[in-house]
Nucleic acid binder design. Structure first.
Lengths: 183, 183
DNA sequence: AATTTCGTTAAGAATTTATTTAACGTTTTA
DNA sequence: TAAAACGTTAAATAAATTCTTAACGAAATT
């Protein structure tokens, strides 16, 4: 192949690399492993890929691709695609960032709200016990009450977080913050 | 101290531990180091602490406390407090989760939007070059156009993310999603 | 001025996390 | 029915992160 016809191809690869670098770095920041982050960045510019294509493209082992692709599926950034007449599994990156990143946060926030609220409920019961306990000295009761109130206050945040998740899942948030605001 | 008067104190500590465990686990999930996560969880139930108190309370080294407390300051989950007449620095946990966690996300999202948008702008320029290049074959031009359009589409997301940050910073989001919704 | 206190930095150790190599089970093809 | 293809699991290795010990510098006390 002559040099002049090759150059545009090289330039396309370089351009892709810039975006892929930024995507992978961002995902790293979000706690996604480097292999999974690079994989998603690669798939973002591909229609669909098989495990062997991933391995070749990234120069990594097949098990690494296998576990990475599954992690990406868990956070809904990659979906399995059916390819007629091929034994190999094929996967495609979710290219709509609204869908992929919001799936990520909803999962995270829901988990956080649920986990922390149940810990708070349990702790509050304990604090009530202490307040009702005849053996508690006045200062201990005061302390228990202070902590109880602090936790009660914090519940507002978790309820709000839950509402935020709901408004994202339902799409209602886009009535308030439109996707396509002109600029 | 007699057993009966000690029990309420023990119960208070156990109740705190439940919440502290949940807080630390959540923060771990968010990429905060275990030491910093445990430290914040501890400080959440304290007025203010010195480095030495932290070290004693967590049973860890002082440099570990020093670096942890600084990381927490960076994400605005801990603030330095002035304590008159003490040489030791004192720090207090931000107890309003709306403030602390939202500071965390705004920082993260702003960074993400900025980084990725500038990579996208650069890449798009490259794709335009390829499209204008006389040496580009028709299929290469088509590929460049496809990628250009894909990136153009994705910018919508980053603009939206920026708008989200703005609405959180300004507090406008709470007009849409009130903090104190009754339930 | 010498010594102690306090916080941070730098180097090293320890732990954790990520990835690879090897082996396995299942399905398909020859 | 034997062999090959494919994906996954398990064990081992490699790499990165986190934390500690030791040393330092600045500020304050004696």
């Amino acid at each position: 192949m002559s040099e002049s016809t090759e150059r545009p191809n090289v330039q396309i690869e370089e351009a892709k690399d810039k975006v892929m670098g930024a995507i992978a770095e961002t995902m790293d920041l979000y706690g996604v492993t480097p292999a999974a982050a690079n994989l998603y960045a690669t798939m973002y510019f591909e229609d669909q890929m098989t495990l062997d294509e991933m391995r070749t493209e990234l120069g990594m082992s097949k098990p690494s691709m296998s576990t990475s692709v599954r992690k990406l599926q868990e956070i809904e950034m990659v979906k399995k695609t059916f390819t007629r007449g091929s034994r190999k599994h094929t996967y495609a990156a979710e290219k709509n960032f609204f869908r992929s990143f919001m799936a990520f946060y909803c999962q995270m926030w829901e988990r956080e709200a649920k986990m922390n609220l149940s810990a708070i409920e349990e702790a509050q019961e304990d604090f009530v016990d202490v307040m009702k306990d005849a053996d508690s000295t006045p200062d201990v009761v005061a302390k228990a009450k202070k902590f109880y109130d602090q936790l009660e206050e914090s519940k507002t945040y978790y309820y709000w977080l839950h509402d935020l998740v709901e408004s994202i899942r339902s799409g209602k948030i886009f009535e308030f913050l439109p996707k396509d605001r002109q600029r």
